[in-house]
Design a protein around this nucleic acid. Structure first.
Lengths: 349, 349
DNA sequence: TTGAATTGTGCAATCGATTGTCCAATTATT
DNA sequence: AATAATTGGACAATCGATTGCACAATTCAA
């Protein structure tokens, strides 16, 4: 009895209707229906209207699968990101989707969870779905980029953003990390800080190299000698941030300012300093990077470098669609978006 | 010249190879190749191995479009959410993807931006992609649910989470908003608060109704009379939170505690109170809802009700996959996940 | 040895939409 | 009026993988 109910209720109430159903209903051919729906000039207005009306009446919904198979074009772009729950990435996706939908594309999102293996899986999935192009930001632990050849070998347009890879010849969208590092350091210098430390990230990623280089440039420009012990490399997690803070602040030559390569690390430093009774910004000024949603609400609120994930997403999509539609030849553009300093309490002295 | 370069570089370096290429290379038929790749029992081990090797050698990648078209099953689930950049939703997606990928499904995500019209677009997109099932959380301003009939009429499994709709007969996954409201209010009562206000959300959404009802129940249980002016309905934005705070705190009978239906509103109240020199929690205790990433770092840190987006996502996916694979008949389950109180400074008196 | 069962493959149709080519009907040209 | 040009639409192949059915080859039973 239960089976009977479940069978009947699961029965299609409205079977999928195809262009052929419309054709039959109007006694015309399927090709005419197809052309009419695509507004082809070879079909008369009269026929087009008849087709459109019948399509509406029958509740016709095109089957993208069939169309995609035939045209070899899916009007879909794939996105590979480390993790969707990080604000920068989710806003990048919002930007990507915004422009994509406007241009009639849909978006498939895959998360690599910062794992190379997962990233390779994502590539397979997206390729199997025959996406028209791909936007990617590289996983933290990826150091072999072969899986991306699935796309490049077949000339499927590929654009990287934020975490880019020099090894692959593609277009890229990044923020001006170098400048970000520079203005962060110069800001601290302008506040009178003399011993400015920097906690950097994994050195195989451009973004962290560039932030570090920007910092170094500012220090050189202002003739500040750097204590080598004041530059740390860190995975930039909450935990490791604590460890770095401890290391720096308990050293024989503690810094009077720290520029952290991300806000999470800056947060750890604030927590650590509070715990130890170190006053911020009086004893220790802090600047982070990213302007995470929480940074504004920390106490003291965190001075940081703002980067717009949304803008990066939009730009990357713009670039990708240009390539897909062959507007740009095969140029490998690298677009650098601006960053800016947001001054808050953590450096206000 | 440029055109020439761009043409040659865009030429396929590795054309897409199909099962027929494998078949030709081995002088067998396409159907045998297909069966071999699908590990069909009717194909001998010897042939299977030959096919697999040749597939690898040629770099064969199945074309999901063709397969999907034929089998009428895409191994894809669609997700409709208001906005990806809200932490609760992005963690729900992480949960959805986690289980989905484990079971061999991929995920297409659409954002409604809390707009009914966009939500209807999402439905179209997902249907056109012929997803095997859909997980959705309703847009704030949706009050007509007809577009979902595209799925229900065709018996495409549909599961709602968090923002659910009673009008549609589907399975649902929610957190225990009623209990959340109850323990939030009871917590404030236990702290000795007497005049406890509540800022609720749009009353066509179950979650806000339930939080409100939970609050009312707690108040009744402890025989606390409620000033009608102490219950407000709000869109729960940052701006409106300010307005609500002002309204409540400048009234003739200001509350000594506020339970806000989300953390954003609680944040607004904290900011407003700080501005006006109202002490938290001494003069005013505050409890939020959701445990946003920032809530821990506010000062004072925010007492709130924790709900796991990840768990909700996993449960919804579990339910959906059960329906897709017809494990459950057509039962309309509603799963309620637990919430719990996180006590922090904003109510610690 | 003969018929039956089993095993391994191939043929051809199919999913739904698109599109090159062809043809009939209508309109324009001289 | 006769021919050319234009218009509107139909036919059938196609995209790549899957699958019901047919059938040859092999093995088994009696």
């Amino acid at each position: 009895m239960l089976d009977f109910i479940s069978l009947t209720t699961r029965m299609k109430k409205e079977s999928n209707i195809t262009i052929h159903d419309i054709a039959k209903a109007l006694s015309i051919s399927g090709s005419t229906v197809s052309r009419a729906l695509n507004d082809n000039s070879r079909i008369s207005e009269k026929t087009k209207n008849a087709v459109r009306n019948m399509a509406k009446k029958l509740g016709y919904q095109p089957n993208a699968l069939a169309s995609n198979l035939r045209t070899n074009c899916t009007k879909t772009i794939g996105v590979i990101i480390p993790r969707i729950s990080r604000y920068f990435f989710s806003s990048a996706i919002t930007g990507i989707e915004e422009l994509a939908r406007e241009k009639g594309y849909s978006v498939i999102i895959c998360q690599s969870n910062d794992l190379e293996e997962r990233e390779a899986d994502c590539v397979q999935t997206l390729f199997a779905s025959r996406v028209d192009g791909v936007i990617s930001s590289i996983a933290l632990n990826t150091d072999n980029y072969d899986h991306y050849k699935t796309f490049t070998n077949r000339n499927i347009p590929l654009v990287f953003f934020d975490r880019v890879c020099d090894e692959l010849e593609t277009s890229k969208v990044v923020v001006d990390d170098f400048k970000g590092g520079f203005i962060a350091a110069e800001h601290l210098i302008s506040k009178g800080c003399k011993r400015i430390a920097h906690i950097s990230g994994p050195q195989h990623l451009n973004i962290y190299i560039n932030r570090l280089q920007g910092y170094l440039k500012a220090m050189r420009k202002h003739n500040i000698t750097i204590d080598k012990e004041h530059i740390l490399e860190s995975p930039l997690t909450r935990e490791d941030g604590m460890a770095c803070a401890k290391k720096l602040l308990e050293s024989s030559n503690p810094p009077d300012a720290i520029f952290a390569a991300n806000d999470t690390t800056a947060l750890s430093i604030i927590l650590y300093a509070k715990e130890k009774g170190i006053r911020i910004p009086e004893d220790l000024a802090i600047v982070g990077f990213s302007n995470e949603p929480f940074s504004e609400y920390l106490s003291p609120s965190l001075t940081t470098i703002e980067q717009s994930g949304f803008d990066v997403g939009v730009k990357a999509t713009e670039l990708l669609l240009d390539i897909i539609n062959n507007k740009t030849g095969n140029t490998q553009e690298t677009i650098v978006l601006p960053v800016n300093l947001i001054e808050r309490e953590s450096s206000n002295r």
